[in-house]
Amino acid sequence: MTDVSERSGVLRRIFSSESDSAPGDSHEQVVLCHDRDSGLKAVIAIHSTALGPALGGTRFHPYASEEEAVQDALNLARGMSYKNALAGLDLGGGKAVIIGDPATVKTEALLRAYGRFVQSLGGRYVTACDVGTYVADMDVIARECDYVTGRSPEHGGAGDSSVLTAFGVFQAMRASAQHRWGAPTLAGRRVGVAGIGKVGHYLVQHLVEEGAQVVVTDVREEAVNRVRAAHPTVEVVADAEALIRANLDVYAPCALGGALDDSTVPALSAAIVCGAANNQLAHPGVEKDLADRGILYAPDYLVNAGGVIQVADEIEGFVFERAKAKAAKIFDTTLEIFARAEADGVPPAVAADRLAERRMADVGRLRSILLPGARRERRG
């Protein structure tokens, strides 16, 4: 294991740029994992342990460069800190990425080697599923590691966390509808879902059952065919750009991050943006652009917290009904964020950040008092 904050030129550049960034943007630890025999190349980023061990999934993706992989891990880890804080969990934020195409390089040997790296962190980081990794992969990783959630029910786990992720998104969407239109329902509304993979296809099911008019798109033909077979009334458009420009009431980005940028925001007709994707805002300032256009944005890390609530429940012995009840509270938290945003005259994303940062700072200080020997990064 190599601590890349010391050894990697890529991370030295990133960390030096973070020295001038806002509080909460720095990270406690970043680790580069390399196993020659299996071909493993991975990055584990721990953003904060102020609230507890850092929990976040493992993404398996063919990044174009090491720098791109590291930056994604950093962004995702920070997002997990805010997500876990806003969800009321006693967990910090971390994330890992494995570099490579999971369809061609994922092997038992590689996953087990990765598990040994996670184990070596002694519980500072707890992993779970993410894009490119699945419940079966967590079972393999757990053969080498004690700090794994999202395992199969056969191995005492919670199973597919996409189930409650989609449920949480649906609750946030209902809350958004209540705030915008006065009733917590999507019935009769036209909802566009970009990305109908692990989370998106469950979200489509909720929406169809609610009576929404659903429009979808996905780059993978098999994902489109699965949704068409289950829900023949769903409309399919060619690509994400076509969906953004479609006549929608709600736009739900459920694929990779960066969906909201300087070109997509002006093209949106939707009154609400509420989706499962992480890091939907391509850069700071997009949240203001949305607000200026009168588009209600439900912050992504609030909206998609159902999955982490599900896998976090696994730590104390998974009970689905208990986890679902916690995920249902995303409805109330979403309404609270909208109310705080209006009261403070800020976009919802800013209101959500402030609430999460306050909890990390307050609880972090409390933990430092209770655990005086602990070394913890302070949050302003």
Rank of each mutant, 00 (worst) to 15 (best):
V236I: 08
R190L: 01
V163Y: 13
L290Q: 01
G197A: 11
D262P: 08
C254W: 04
A240N: 15
L186H: 00
A238N: 13
A183C: 11
H231C: 01
L290G: 05
G150F: 02
G159T: 11
C254R: 02
V216W: 06
A259S: 14
C254H: 00
G156A: 06
L248S: 07
L268I: 03
L203M: 00
Q213C: 08
R228A: 11
R228V: 13
G192I: 00
Q280L: 13
K288W: 15
S152R: 09
D249Q: 02
G285A: 10
G200K: 03
A259H: 04
N278P: 03
H283L: 12
A212W: 02
D289C: 13
V193W: 05
T233N: 11
L243D: 01
V216F: 05
A267L: 11
M173V: 08
V193T: 00
P232I: 03
R245V: 07
E154T: 11
G150E: 01
Q171W: 11
N247F: 12
D249I: 05
V250N: 02
R189Y: 04
H155W: 08
V163L: 15
H206L: 05
E222T: 14
P232L: 10
D218N: 14
A270V: 02
S269D: 12
G285F: 11
P266V: 10
L203P: 02
N225S: 15
E287A: 09
V250P: 03
D160M: 00
G211L: 01
T185G: 07
R226Y: 15
K198S: 13
R228D: 01
V208E: 05
N278D: 00
S152M: 09
A255E: 00
E235G: 09
G188M: 07
A270I: 00
I272L: 06
N247Q: 15
D218S: 15
V286D: 07
V216S: 06
H231Q: 03
G168F: 10
Q213Y: 13
E210G: 12
P253Q: 12
A267D: 00
V236D: 04
G258R: 01
